[in-house]
Design a protein around this nucleic acid. Structure first.
Lengths: 206, 206
DNA sequence: CCTAGATATCAACACGCGTTGATATGCTTC
DNA sequence: GAAGCATATCAACGCGTGTTGATATCTAGG
């Protein structure tokens, strides 16, 4: 898919294309998908350009550098963020399942959120820039935005929230990145159920 | 550190160096450290060679290619493997803490094991080769070698073991890769304790 | 229509990469 | 001490990368 011109006579269309251009968005979508599936270093401007059916130089014209393009890709939609933080408030009964379900459904079923998140996660393994981004995302967006909801924010509570988040990230790694069969070839519902069993005693008062 | 010759007259020593050479091991150690801390793609033969105080071509002479060197680096010492699988056998009382402690201590306190493991984990994010290696490691070494110890090996049991392993990997990611402050700036003992709280109901009969 | 600017491609750059073949030096054996 | 092998460096290759400046084409405004 994503080939370029159809059946005209000239070899390659050179200048501006007719119609109102949506090229910037097309490039951004291609970049998001590439960064999410291949990681930062393995993703090249030329591959993104090819996916978008566009010259590599045009990518540089819209986004000044690969780094800036990557940074743009990493923005997570607000609705997904809210979904993940809101799950922590509410009664302690069932908090394990609520959190597990919200988190995993966002990471697995919502492409507009999971692609930036996966790009961040994959990038964090190879570039310090992405690691810092993911660090701040978990520390500032999740941990701090959440610990207020959950019986104060003593250090022990924050640690438990951090551990729970880390565990959920681990499940994403196993399912979406490493694809361990035992964990990957199973319905989300089974995963949510088992994960909830583990998170519940961590997050409820003992 | 790791500069080369000291104060002689000739510009660079060219041929074989005197004494019995331990160069292969020096290169391997440098490679292990680099792959563990920078990941596969960001690690270059030239950097490894510089760390080892050696020409890049020599690295290629000992290990035929970057891939082969990487594969050599990935071998996990048997004692560490045993430590991680043995923790699952024994009484159900305290199994959460036993498993968490064994796993985390190997990954954090035993450099000869944690460097290959971290290299595998980081590499899994950017190259399918390493992902496959880590997949087989978890699936074949851990899951299968372990499910026999734990009340049969029905699918549900194997899933719980898989989830527990994934969660432990998540904690390593948070502490050693992403370095989320709330989780990273805390004693291993606190982490083991909180992790055990979560793993216990997952691994013991309910 | 003509000009200005936005949108697009093209050709080339300097760089770092993995890898290779030639060559130099030290060790070991006869 | 000469031969032969192991150990080491050097110089270069072809390639793919991010990035840049020149140029072509289309659209909008006077």
């Amino acid at each position: 898919m994503s080939s370029s011109q159809s059946g005209a006579s000239s070899p390659v269309r050179r200048g501006r294309r007719p119609g109102q251009p949506e090229t910037r968005q097309v490039i951004l979508d291609a970049a998001r998908a590439r960064f999410a599936s291949d990681g930062y270093t393995a993703t090249t401007i030329r591959k993104i350009a090819a996916d978008a059916g566009v010259d590599a130089a045009l990518v540089m014209q819209y986004f000044k550098s690969k780094d800036e393009l990557f940074a743009t890709v990493l923005s997570v939609p607000a609705h997904a963020l809210m979904r993940m933080t809101d799950a922590w408030r509410g009664p302690e009964v069932g908090i394990g399942e609520r959190v597990a379900r919200a988190f995993l459904e966002v990471w697995e079923n919502d492409p507009t959120a999971s692609e930036p998140l996966l790009a961040m996660l994959r990038g964090a393994m190879s570039t310090e820039q992405a690691a810092a981004q993911l660090r701040d995302f978990i520390e500032d967006r999740l941990l701090i935005g959440v610990s207020a909801h959950l019986r104060g924010d003593d250090p022990d509570t924050r640690l438990r929230i951090g551990i729970a988040s880390a565990m959920l990230v681990g499940i994403i790694v196993a399912r979406s990145v490493v694809r361990v069969p035992t964990v990957a070839n199973v319905s989300l519902e089974s995963i949510v159920s088992a994960t909830a069993t583990a998170l519940q005693p961590l997050l409820a008062s003992e």
